[in-house]
Design a protein around this nucleic acid. Structure first.
Lengths: 215, 215
DNA sequence: CGAATATTGGACTGTTTAGTCCAGTTACTT
DNA sequence: AAGTAACTGGACTAAACAGTCCAATATTCG
């Protein structure tokens, strides 16, 4: 895939149309949804277009009508998965403004991980590990992580405000450390099939936040 | 690959011989070394046997003489990479017995990451993200992580002993949190192409260790 | 030496894969 | 209704792929 010696930038000329009717939009969505589930289960490299076609009940011409090639589809999968993960965490973090709230978020994450027997790891983290060496996928994933960190940052700011502290300390740094703990904890949980490393990593990060925010 | 409905356990009958002469051992080593480099660069799923053959200057019959199938070769790659990574970190951690030493280890890791422009992430972490959903590869990776945590644990024990403290606290938990920070920091560093999240995660973990060990 | 065993070269097979192509159908517009 | 554009079905191609096979060459050892 994309082993050309002269790999041109993909965005040059679009060549692939966005859906222009509701029916087309539904087809495209079915394809992306099926691809997202398959990539989640087997990774991008192990997901074939034919499998996506079968799972989405689409035809080959439909896939190539909306996506120039497999790389484009994978990019759409990243965006779809990011929407989903960031949506979940934005919901969990949106109104958070206390250490107790942060601990409830921790419990929710652990619970979610337990429910899948620690399998699969973080949907976004797994994509990041596989797709961080190609520019466009890397950029999409980097942006997603940045937005994720932004949700933490906003929550920490609310925590600080609520405690009557003047906004101080590097909240961005704090949120990056939190995200790193989460990702590392989820990866170890996946490999060791235990939520323990995840719990330990998150508890450490929460303590760190409390200390830095003087809460 | 291995899509049989009746997937038998692989260890049943070996069918593949270990090298019995020095020449054979050298061939096998060449194959594993080449495969390890390719898997590191492109992931296991994107590494073909043919590419391994070309890179190692071996022939197809040589590969299948020493490995029953691609899965077996990937397993050998995991073991090889684990040897390498654990060897490096064991060397760095072996004589460590102080907070200052831990900070030097941190600097070495950051330095190493910088030298590759944050590309590739952790060689073992990347394998873990890709290969934690198949039993044998997952088991090999879990064991490697456990050994890695063991090196931290031993270092923390020395730190505690040197400070004249009685061995207290859950050193295992501390080392798992440290490993999680390292893995999460390396993943974010890889995706964001910046050592900053790695530095933040490691500094947080070191502070945590200091606090728990009362150093 | 000479038999037995280990190793090697590489052609070959059957399957899977990404991607192409075009004829046919559906929906929108006027 | 007719013309245009969007969408769809699926056969087809060329390349890549994992894995097989066997004849040939080395190496070991009694």
């Amino acid at each position: 895939m994309n082993k050309n010696v002269t790999a041109l930038p993909k965005t040059a000329l679009p060549k692939t149309s966005l859906p222009k009717t509701a029916r087309g939009a539904a087809t495209r969505a079915r394809i992306v949804d099926a691809a997202t589930a398959l990539v989640r289960a087997r990774g991008a490299a192990n997901t074939t277009i034919d499998a996506v076609i079968e799972a989405s009940k689409a035809s080959k011409s439909q896939v190539y009508h909306y996506f120039a090639d497999k790389d484009e589809l994978v990019l759409a999968v990243i965006q779809r998965q990011a929407e989903c993960v960031l949506g979940t965490h934005e919901g969990l973090l949106r109104k958070l403004n206390s250490l107790a709230g942060l601990r409830r978020w921790r419990d929710a994450v652990v619970e979610l991980t337990e429910q899948t027997n620690c399998a699969g790891g973080c949907p976004l983290g797994s994509l990041a590990a596989e797709l961080s060496e190609t520019p466009r996928t890397r950029a999409a994933l980097a942006e997603s992580f940045a937005r994720w960190a932004g949700y933490f940052e906003a929550a920490f700011a609310r925590m600080q405000a609520r405690a009557g502290k003047t906004p101080a300390g590097d909240l961005r740094a704090l949120s990056e450390a939190m995200l790193a703990s989460l990702q590392g904890g989820l990866l170890l949980a996946q490999t060791l099939r235990s939520t323990r490393p995840l719990e330990l990593a998150l508890d450490m990060a929460i303590e760190h936040v409390a200390a830095r925010l003087k809460l």
